[in-house]
Amino acid sequence: MTSPRTHTGTRALFATGAGLALTAALTLTGGGTAGAEARAAGPTTVTPAGHYFKAKLTGKATFKAGPVTVTCTVSGSDPSADGGANNLVPGAPGNHNDAGPVSSAITPPTYSSCTSSQAGVKAAITTSGSWSVALQYGAPTTATLGMPVGGFVVQTSGLASCTVTAAPATAADIVGTFTNGAPSTLTITNAMVPIKVVGGFGCPTTATSSVFNATYEVTDATDPSSAITVTG
């Protein structure tokens, strides 16, 4: 399991009775690929086989529940520094599946440069565990992000002291789309992610889900002149 990563200096909005928009993102698969498997309609090939890839946020990532919105402008997932299996397209023939998605483990994504729609609360964001992405060729090509149980936790301080845990009971699947290009993109649109909030006054403890939107550029970290591509 990947060691937890803590990121301070971000902000989150909390309001009594309001939902909290905090989830993990972007991430790429292990925690759960049931969504992609259910959509399996044919063969999938991811190339280049055996190449590492990285994901970098383009634009903004937003996390929203009710009137509460948290916006981050920096996020990403990079290959393991030790050259491990994270963010690696499987080597041939594992980069092809005759009847379903091709999956890869990914490094837990990091988030920073975050602001909220209301000031006064600071947050430390920790991501951990086995994240993954499952790519299924189709029209459109789908990208199912697997978030492990408790893989994204926000601890707040200031006007409210709260702990927000995404995927609190079971691993969560976040289904988006993958578009080939230079660079290729992974787009998440209005994905619902379960959360659990605990804490005292000012914590939205009745919130059970948040909505996530983000677009990531997915590039070839082994050969920058190449591109990560999904075909049938």
Results as ranks from 00 to 15, higher is better:
232 G>Q: 14
55 A>Y: 01
49 A>V: 11
54 K>W: 03
188 I>Y: 07
90 P>M: 10
155 Q>N: 15
5 R>A: 14
214 A>F: 08
140 P>K: 10
74 V>D: 09
15 A>W: 00
135 L>P: 04
4 P>I: 05
8 T>I: 14
114 C>A: 03
222 T>M: 04
17 G>H: 12
108 P>I: 03
117 S>C: 06
79 P>D: 12
118 Q>T: 11
189 T>M: 03
188 I>L: 15
146 G>T: 00
170 T>C: 05
26 L>G: 15
73 T>D: 05
58 T>K: 01
207 A>I: 08
221 A>I: 07
75 S>V: 00
79 P>F: 15
201 F>M: 10
226 S>W: 05
169 A>P: 00
104 S>L: 02
25 A>L: 08
105 A>L: 11
41 A>F: 12
223 D>R: 02
97 N>K: 08
16 T>I: 10
19 G>P: 05
62 T>V: 06
92 A>F: 07
96 H>G: 01
157 S>M: 00
81 A>Y: 01
40 A>Q: 02
162 C>V: 03
89 V>C: 08
36 A>F: 07
85 A>N: 07
95 N>G: 05
188 I>G: 01
42 G>P: 03
121 V>S: 13
140 P>W: 02
194 P>Y: 07
174 I>N: 06
34 A>L: 10
167 A>F: 08
230 V>D: 05
201 F>R: 12
203 C>M: 07
91 G>M: 09
119 A>N: 13
223 D>M: 03
231 T>M: 04
137 Y>F: 11
171 A>I: 01
60 K>N: 14
44 T>A: 07
205 T>K: 11
182 A>G: 10
21 A>M: 06
186 L>H: 01
201 F>V: 15
51 H>C: 01
84 G>C: 04
32 G>N: 15
17 G>W: 14
34 A>I: 09
179 T>V: 10
162 C>K: 04
96 H>L: 00
101 P>C: 05
19 G>K: 11
68 V>I: 10
140 P>Y: 09
29 T>S: 12
45 T>V: 01
24 A>M: 13
134 A>W: 10
138 G>E: 12
74 V>W: 07
50 G>V: 06
130 S>Y: 09
229 T>I: 15
33 T>H: 03
91 G>H: 15
152 F>T: 04
186 L>N: 00
178 F>I: 01
20 L>Q: 10
155 Q>C: 09
44 T>N: 07
142 T>A: 12
14 F>I: 14
44 T>R: 13
131 W>S: 04
92 A>M: 06
197 V>D: 12
104 S>R: 00
34 A>V: 11
226 S>Y: 00
20 L>G: 08
5 R>D: 09
